[in-house]
Design a protein around this nucleic acid. Structure first.
Lengths: 342, 342
DNA sequence: CTGTTAGCGCATTCAA
DNA sequence: TTGAATGCGCTAACAG
């Protein structure tokens, strides 16, 4: 591998001059610029990113950590899309992504700190947004530039989130508009901020439309089809009636569909179903599933942009921007009740 | 951030001594070891990975590149699982993963070269296995340590693959055993090695069982549900009869199911269906889909192991191991014809 | 067992 | 506009 010295020798200049033309310094005569370019070509010179990182004391790489357990993670392509978005944004500004997938929150936290302390990355994108997240305060204290995908329930911080409450509100209203009067809500794990927010929207819609909010119609489960099925089953056992289900994840919706089939309930006539995430494959359920479409790709892209912006302003105060991305209800058959009026 | 010098000063030793105890050198007196440990604690010393990389001239990070267009990519969790496997293996040996997702093959190639030439990574894991892949020879020529997920059709190289041909063979035999006599094959894009292999297995099974291989029963399509549907539709239009479909991807199988419904063909009675990948959500199709289960997680893990092994033996000859992982046919209802015997 | 010295490849300050 | 010198933080060869 050719180094800056080799180029310097060939071009007949000093290494620092080469460094300058590589950096695009303006105070270099065109003649030597030319000579250096030529020499660089000749030896196929490519700057060593590691050496550069050491000298400049930043790496131009961003860490993205993820713990799997807690998330619906890879049953739906959410994080894949987030990654795509991140990668795409990174490309445009010549940043790199260091990825780490852990088994649990704890490992993830350790990995974050390691990446930062070893100075492997300039900043982090994290996706842990539990209600009492232990990681966020630590990162804050260490002065680490980071952005959250989701949002922090406690400390203000840079974050990119989808409007869970609003989305949930819309979805619930949609069910109400379709004439369903007893909407059950299958929530994800309760300590997730996202669960809180979605519950909130559900509640708001009910109240605002003059319907009572009943605790007993809310069940929380771990993200899985089975979890969804069981949630409803437990409702039934407890004698709680419902004619529609708002599922905080498409997997729950899938479980709901199975539940309906199991008990010979016709969807959407006897049971309306709305899911969350609009997982691509879900278009092919029977009947096609109404679901809240999340802009996962954009979530990743925005998060990366935000972080890169933040990294650009090394000296200044850390900003506390919270960007919220809209989601949209994709209405399909599972929630379209053919009411009398039609 | 504390450096090795700070530690040295506090411990009253030279920087190189500190470096040695960090590296776990044996030829250090326990007494100074103790002193150094203590000093490290005191200032919360963490070695700077960048400086270390520069000095040792390797980074302990592996690049993983991916171009999306060509792959079924994120409609199924294949690559997510691969990533998990890679990450898990990397953790155990303290390696890191640099991720890059490109829009197309060309960009991916450039990114690979960039990562290597900038010396950001020690090696690469690539997932492009087209029949005439332009990237592989280049990496080979540059002397880059790399492993392929899939396999190289031309040059021998380190690779981890699933036994596509065998899997396809089994799947076809299964359909034959169930009494289907006219098995159509929906293949992925023809320039993919994986397509070749799966076609081969299909062919082999037919021939071996004494059935003719008919070109006209093979259609190739881009990975999508629609592609699958259209493929069969075109078969029908051309007057090609089939009573079973081997789909080289679950998305095709999904399209097949829609096709069956559209033309009122009962599955599995009038049309047997087998897919590839065993996408989790596919368990919930109606009827549940028989599919070839791919060990994606293990694929990623093995690839990473292989590469790390390769990187360990810097001096020696590059190995040319090709590990093949077994897959298993998950038989469900979509291919279980209730034949007379039952 | 430990310290000294000399890099790793590049950026940057200070002179010229 | 350019070069020389110094440092980024750590490793490793060579002495002792």
């Amino acid at each position: 591998m050719a180094t800056i010295k080799d180029v310097a020798k060939i071009a007949g200049v000093s290494p620092s001059t080469v460094s300058r033309v590589v950096a695009g310094s303006s105070r270099i005569s065109n003649r030597t610029k030319e000579r250096v370019w030529r020499a660089m070509e000749e030896v196929h010179y490519v700057p060593n990113a590691i050496a550069r990182s050491l000298a400049r004391s930043h790496t131009r790489t961003v860490g993205f950590t993820l713990s799997r357990q807690a998330d619906q993670a890879f049953s739906n392509p959410f994080f894949s899309e987030v990654l795509r978005g991140m990668s795409s944004a990174a490309q445009t500004r010549d940043y790199n992504i260091l990825l780490s997938i852990s088994m649990n929150q704890e490992e993830e936290g350790e990995k974050c700190l390691q990446l930062i302390r070893e100075r492997r990355v300039d900043g982090l994108i994290v996706s842990t947004s539990r209600v009492k997240d232990s990681l966020i305060p630590i990162l804050e204290r260490e002065g680490t530039p980071f952005v959250i995908i989701g949002r922090s329930a406690e400390v203000p911080a840079l974050s990119v989130n989808n409007d869970n409450q609003q989305a949930s509100y819309q979805a619930t209203r949609h069910l109400l508009d379709q004439g369903y009067r007893n909407v059950a809500f299958i929530s994800g794990p309760e300590d997730l901020v996202v669960s809180m927010d979605r519950l909130q929207g559900y509640k708001q819609a009910l109240l605002e439309q003059g319907f009572p909010f009943r605790e007993e119609r809310v069940v929380s489960a771990d993200f899985s089809e089975e979890g969804g099925f069981r949630a409803l089953y437990s409702l039934k056992e407890r004698g709680v009636f419902f004619d529609a289900v708002l599922a905080a994840d498409d997997l729950f919706a899938l479980g709901t569909l199975r539940y309906a089939k199991h008990f010979h309930l016709s969807v959407p006539e006897e049971l309306g179903v709305v899911g969350f995430n609009d997982t691509p494959l879900m278009t092919y359920t029977d009947p096609p599933l109404t679901s809240v479409r999340i802009l996962s790709y954009e979530l990743g892209r925005e998060a990366m942009e935000l972080l890169m912006d933040r990294l650009g302003h090394a000296g200044r105060q850390p900003m506390n921007k919270e960007v919220v991305l809209p989601s949209r209800l994709e209405v399909r058959q599972s929630s379209l009740r053919r009411t009398g009026s039609v």
